Simulated scan of single mutants.
Amino acid sequence: MKLNDFKLEVYFGKHEFSAPYLLAQSDCEAMTIKELLQMAGESSSEFLDTWLGYTEVSGHPILRKEISRLYSTVGEEDVLVHSGAEEAIFNFMNVFLQKGDHVICQFPVYQSLYEVANAIGCEVTRWELRRIGEEWSFDVDELKDLVRPETKLVVINNPNNPTGYLVPNRDLMKIASFTEERGIFVFSDEVYRGLELDQSVEKQKSFADISDNSLALGVMSKSYGLAGLRIGWVVSHNKSVLESMTRFKHYTTICNSAPSEYLAWKA
């Protein structure tokens, strides 16, 4: 596999830890381990007693149970924990896609959401967000025109990075109905879920809660400000996809950091 440079990460590599002021980040402000444990009402003694052996490949059962509570139809058996969101994206694309598959990806989005598929040899069609004045939107009906017989995957990012656009729940339902009818899988990057500014509007649904033919991505960085834990996850009712990703993980990280899983659970 030949991957192109990750332009955002190359930029951060030059400036992230040397610039006096950093306005390019997309996470909440981070905190120390001490501050996190104080917020959780925990002493440091339990953390210091954390066993530093291998952890379960799928993630600690307690952590998976806590993650499942973020969704309305998901159980801990539907959760697979990874080392950050990036590993989850990479692993999913590699187990689900093959050269020649057609992928439709919402755009603009985080580069790996289309770049990994491109490196595999898939043909990627961009489903463009349109800017009208100060607002962003996209045409759900346009998806029907982009689909081909060989279309295997639709990738969405909601809330969207970098525009902040929120796909209304009614449009999520339309996407779910359309893709299910045609047997097209949906990968939903939801790492910014929970950061919606206007809490008076209808709460954003996870795609995993409205379609069994999908997989949703979450992470401890964006909404939680705990990027240093390197804990991400996917949730899906599709057991075959989760099993394939678990087996692929045997060749990437195998398992997650035990201290990171403990702190993610407490967070």
Rank of each mutant, 00 (worst) to 15 (best):
V191K: 02
N169S: 11
Y192W: 15
I156K: 03
L195N: 08
E180Y: 01
S188G: 01
F187A: 08
G164S: 06
F185D: 02
V154A: 14
L166E: 09
D189K: 13
G194H: 07
T179P: 10
D189I: 10
S200N: 12
G194L: 11
G164R: 11
S177E: 13
R182A: 09
L172R: 01
M173P: 00
G164I: 14
S188W: 02
V186H: 00
V191M: 12
L195W: 07
V191D: 02
E202R: 07
A176S: 15
E196Y: 11
S200F: 14
A208M: 11
V201Y: 05
Q199H: 15
F178C: 05
Y165V: 08
A176V: 09
M173V: 01
P159N: 01
E196D: 06
P162N: 07
D189P: 12
E181I: 07
S206G: 08
L195S: 06
D189L: 13
I175P: 02
S200H: 12
R182D: 03
E202S: 12
D171T: 00
E190H: 09
V155P: 03
S177G: 15
S188H: 03
V154E: 04
K174D: 00
N169G: 13
N161K: 12
N157V: 10
A176T: 05
Q204E: 02
N169D: 06
K205G: 01
L197G: 07
Y165T: 06
Y192A: 06
E190M: 12
